[in-house]
Design a protein around this nucleic acid. Structure first.
Lengths: 150, 150
DNA sequence: TTTAGAATTAGAATGATTCTAATTCAGAAA
DNA sequence: TTTCTGAATTAGAATCATTCTAATTCTAAA
C-alpha cells in the first residue's frame, strides 16, 4: 500500500472559478455562470422555467433540472435570492441590495423597492425577547402606476 | 308564457347566515362555519391538510376539496388570510389585526408579531408615484427564542 | 491514466392545489 | 307540497412546480 498522500483540499485553478460571498462559495461552472448572468441581465423577476427558456438560447443542451440545480446552488451561496410573491412558481432575483418587492396584481409586473435610508426594520415589530432574525421577505401587492392610470 | 315573476335577490333567512366584512360576503354554510371556527381556535398557522384533519373530527364526511373550497371563499370574503411563508403548503390565519409573521426555521413554529403603534409601512419604501398598495405580506425568518436557548 | 467526487441529465416521483363532472342541498316559486 | 334553480359539496382526475433517482459525463488531482 502506498503511503497516504498528503491530500490538500481542492483549490481553484485553471478554468475552475469560485465566487465567495458571505462565507459561502460555489464553483461557477459554465451552466451556473450562464444562469447567473441571464438572471443578472433580467429586469423582471423570472421563474425557473423563464430562466430555462432564456438560457436554452445560449446552451441548447441544458435541462430544467439543471436550472433548478444551479438556482439552488446560487441561492445557497447567496449570489441570488429566491422570491415568494404568491402561490405557484418561485421567482429569482440577482439584486442583492436590501429591498422589497412590489407585485402588480393587474399586470403581474414585479418592481424592486428600496427602503428609505433611515429604515430599521427590526424595531417595528414586537418579536419575543431572544428571537433571532436571519432574513425578512416583504411582498407588497397592489396596482402599479401604469395599470392604475388606465 | 306566465308573467315574469318579480324575483327578488335571495335574502338570508332561517339557518342561512351571512357575514359581511369589507364589502364582501359569504354564506356561512355548516362546512364553512366549521372550517372558520377550527381556524379561529388554532393558535398555530395550519395548512389546508391540517385543517382538513381537524375538521374531520367534527364532520367526518368533509373532503379535502371542500376544505380548499371553503378556505377560498373565506379568504375572498376577508374573514381569513392566506399566508405564504415558504414554498410548499399555504398556511391560513384568522387573525385580522394588522400583523406580520415570524417563522422559526428550526422548529417551524409561526408567531404573529404586531407592529409598533407608530409604524406606517407605506412611507418606508420608495414606490413609484401612482402605485396603489392593497396589501403587504411580511415574513420574518429566523430562530425563535426557545430554539435559540438550546 | 486513473480515480474520486461533483455536475449534469432525462425521466420518474412527489406534493399541493385546482379542475371536472356528478350529486346534494337550501330556499323560492308554482 | 312539489318543483326548480343555482350554489355547495364530493371523489377522483388532472395539473403544475418541484424534487428525487440513477446513470452518465466531466474536472482536476494523484
Amino acid at each position: 500500500m502506498p503511503p497516504t498522500p498528503n491530500r490538500q483540499p481542492a483549490k481553484p485553478t485553471g478554468l475552475e472559478c469560485r465566487m465567495a460571498v458571505l462565507g459561502a462559495d460555489v464553483r461557477l461552472t459554465p451552466h451556473r455562470r450562464e444562469v447567473f448572468e441571464v438572471l443578472q441581465a433580467s429586469t423582471d423577476h423570472p421563474t425557473a422555467t423563464d430562466l430555462f427558456t432564456r438560457v436554452k438560447d445560449r446552451s441548447p443542451g441544458i435541462s430544467l433540472a439543471t436550472v433548478y440545480n444551479c438556482l439552488e446552488h446560487l441561492t445557497g451561496a447567496g449570489l441570488i435570492k429566491q422570491v415568494h410573491l404568491e402561490r405557484g412558481q418561485s421567482r429569482y432575483c440577482a439584486n442583492l441590495h436590501e429591498h422589497v418587492h412590489f407585485h402588480c396584481e393587474t399586470c403581474g409586473k414585479v418592481i424592486d423597492a428600496h427602503p428609505a435610508a433611515d429604515f430599521d426594520p427590526a424595531k417595528f415589530w414586537n418579536l419575543p425577547a431572544g428571537t433571532r432574525v436571519s432574513r425578512m421577505e416583504l411582498a407588497i401587492h397592489g396596482t402599479c402606476s401604469a395599470c392604475a392610470a388606465r
